[in-house]
Amino acid sequence: MKRQIPLFITFFVGTLLIFSVFIPPMETLGENFTLFFDIIAVFAFFLGAGNLVRVHVSKLRKRKADWGFSIVTLIGFGFMLFVGLLKIGNPGGIAADVTAPGSWFQEMFNYVINPLQSTMYALLAFFVASASYRAFRAKNREATILLMAAFVILLGRTPLGMMLTAWIPDSLSIFQIPNMAVWIMNSFNLAGQRAILIGISLGVVAMSLRLILGVERTYLGGDDSG
């Protein structure tokens, strides 16, 4: 029973939504259900918050490695929750947008979250370089193809590419590196992306069908746990 009802719910909701696409009066059903999902997700925040606090408090209690930093997390969490839920310093009071300029919440976003977020993102510039060094090695045929394609495109994106190959006459201009880079983007790149995309869409379709039919059910966990 504990598994039958959820399987039925999945089947029912899934089938309903599939048919709603073909039936104009039911078209908005999908939108509403997506909104439902957002609302359920907000309830799940309680689970998330509870878990976060539990993990860090237990780290503190057990004096695990780096327990001192758990205090930072807990204070940061509590403070942000406090200024966000009570809209502290918000020029428009409770009715205003929570991210109104001047509110503490927004200041925290601008001066704490934003620099951290964009610096983490900017680390990618470094990692792109270290990955290129470490992994672009002609170990086998596949890796060599990968390496060559990346190199041609990289070269094509700098003035070097044009300078190296400007001597090639117009009747052979496809061999000028910038042109070659564009051509690769428009042919091989397009073909590869399309093949993956078609595969993915078929995979999603098949997977959805398995879920609706109740064939794929790992997400429900075991029979006895509960």
Binding site: K2, R3, I5, P6, L7, I9, T10, F11, F12, V13, G14, T15, L16, L17, I18, S20, V21, G30, F33, T34, F36, F37, I40, L197, I198, I200, S201, L202, V204, V205, M207, S208, L209, L211, I212, Y219, L220, G221
Partner: peptide, 24 residues
């Protein structure tokens, strides 16, 4: 598990047609 089943059912239903339509 009931809300989970609801979420997964919604996902499956929406994705099924969306991917068949736009990508495939």
């Amino acid at each position: 598990r009931w809300p989970l089943a609801f979420i997964i059912g919604t996902t499956a239903g929406l994705n099924f047609v969306r991917y068949l339509r736009s990508d495939f």
